[in-house]
Amino acid sequence: MKVRYFAWLRQRTGCTGEEVDPPEGVRNVADLMAYLGGRHPRFAEACAASGVVRCAVNQEHVGPEHPLAPTDEVAFFPPVTGG
């Protein structure tokens, strides 16, 4: 599964993206956030604050319950500030 990080989440994890192979129990976005939090303590900190970490799967905005497939591209980012 391809994971990407943007803005200050990229700085916190220290990487723009990574290829991960999460364990069996990781079924949705919330599960993946918990799993990635184990690899990046500062990502876990950000996830602990509600509404700060947003997610897109295959470039569409999704909520924490969204199911995941191994071929998905999953992106994590703070609330957007364009315009």
């Binding site: 943007f6 803005a7 897109a56 905005h61 992106a75 957007v80 500030t81």
Partner: peptide, 10 residues
């Protein structure tokens, strides 16, 4: 656009 387009200002 302000709430959906993935842009971040630094």
């Amino acid at each position: 656009l302000k709430t959906k387009a993935p842009f971040w200002k630094l």
